[in-house]
C-alpha cells in the first residue's frame, strides 16, 4: 500500500496549484473553479487520514463537505449571474469599488 504521506503531498500540490490559479486568473468563473480544486485537495487529505487512522468519521465529514460544496456552488454561481447582469463582465478586477 502507498504511504499516507504521498497522498498528503499530492493534496498539497493540488492545493497550491488551485491557490496560484485563484490569484492569476481574472475571470470570476475560473477563480471559482480553482476554489473547487482547493476544496477537493482538502477532501483528499481527510480521506487519506481516515485510512491512516482506520476511522470512518473523516469520510463522513467529507460527505458533508460535498453537500456543502453543492450549496456553495449554487449560491456562488447565482452571485456570478447577478453580477454579470449588473456589469456584463466576469472580470474580478472591475469589481474593485470597495476600496479604502
Amino acid at each position: 500500500m502507498v504511504e499516507t504521506s504521498y497522498y498528503i503531498a499530492l493534496a498539497g500540490i493540488l492545493f497550491s496549484i488551485g491557490a496560484v490559479g485563484f490569484l492569476m486568473r481574472r475571470s470570476v468563473i475560473q477563480m471559482f473553479l480553482c476554489v473547487e480544486l482547493m476544496l477537493n485537495s482538502a477532501n483528499l487529505v481527510l480521506v487519506a487520514f481516515a485510512r491512516a487512522w482506520g476511522n470512518l468519521e473523516a469520510q463522513t465529514a467529507v460527505f458533508i463537505i460535498l453537500t456543502l460544496a453543492a450549496a456553495e456552488v449554487a449560491i456562488g454561481l447565482a452571485i456570478i449571474v447577478a453580477i454579470f447582469r449588473k456589469r456584463v463582465s466576469t472580470n474580478v478586477d472591475e469589481l474593485s469599488s470597495l476600496k479604502g
Binding site: 490569484l23 477563480m31 478586477d93 469589481l95 474593485s96 476600496k99 479604502g100
Partner: peptide
C-alpha cells in the same frame, strides 16, 4: 495603510497566501 485596501480581490488573496 489604506493603500493595502485596494479593492482588488486578488490583492487580498495574495495577502492570504503570504500569510499561509
Amino acid at each position: 495603510l489604506s493603500f493595502w485596501q485596494s479593492g482588488f480581490a486578488r490583492g487580498y488573496g495574495v495577502s492570504v497566501l503570504i500569510g499561509t
